[in-house]
Amino acid sequence: MKQFLVLGVINGAVYGLLATGLVLVYKGARVFNFAQAEFGTVAAFFAYWLIEKQHLPYWAGDLLAILGIAIVGFLVERLIVRPLFTAPRVTLLVATAGVALVLIQLQFIIVGANAVQIGPALRGIGVNILDVVVSPQRLLIFGVLVILGLGMGYFFSRTDLGLAVLATSQEPVATELAGIGTRRMSSFIWTFAAVLGGIAGVLLAPTGALFPGFMTITDLLPAFTAAVVGGITSLPGAFLGGLLIGITQGLGEFYFGSSTIVRGAANLLVFAVLVLVLLVRPKGLIGREA
């Protein structure tokens, strides 16, 4: 059981990272970003190409991959989001799903359907936590999440740019009057969200097989749930939600993983948590804007 718990926490870290990107976009554009996980997948493939094909060192490949996905995020905002600034939100929602589809299809054409792999960034034997051996790569994921969480907390409460993003999401007209360009903020928000997705992607890449759309398939729905459980507008909430969902999934896997009556019990449990939170605390665990 301990093993499932520890793995759950680490999977939860990835969900948390994706959920933060979702929250960020939701704050900026009031829309669910269906392409968030795909930002991660694309970054993972960038990293694969740079590290395995171009033989760059690991850190350089990852940095370039994140830079690449930042450009993709910027282009998505310019080409797709901006023309739909005043469109109904459901249209923008479908557009983000369209972006995800385009990215997945491009991966199929360029990389092909066969799974590929990257060697881990940190080699060496695992570390023993609660009698569970955890690979250094997974520890790295967790460490980066904690650092990013603290950094983003500081960014959104102490820096001018962070406050401007918050202001844009809360009161666009007043923000505009205060001399902050909301459209430029929108560009920034989507680029930043893509970077967050990209970080999750390059960290996750060495832990398993890469195939087109792999993060959308495995991580997007838990990340959505994490974002809502944490209160869709709260960044710390998204982190906590991610961990909670990861642990829930771990427990579900432990107790019902071998059940043949209900397939995908771990995911059903995640949805049960979602429904429970929405019924008891519809604003999420931390419903405050922060």
């Binding site: 023309p83 739909l84 469109a87 557009a95 369209g98």
Partner: peptide, 9 residues
């Protein structure tokens, strides 16, 4: 899909 949406929401 994207072309339709961005030019004709």
């Amino acid at each position: 899909l994207l072309l339709t949406l961005t030019t004709f929401p």
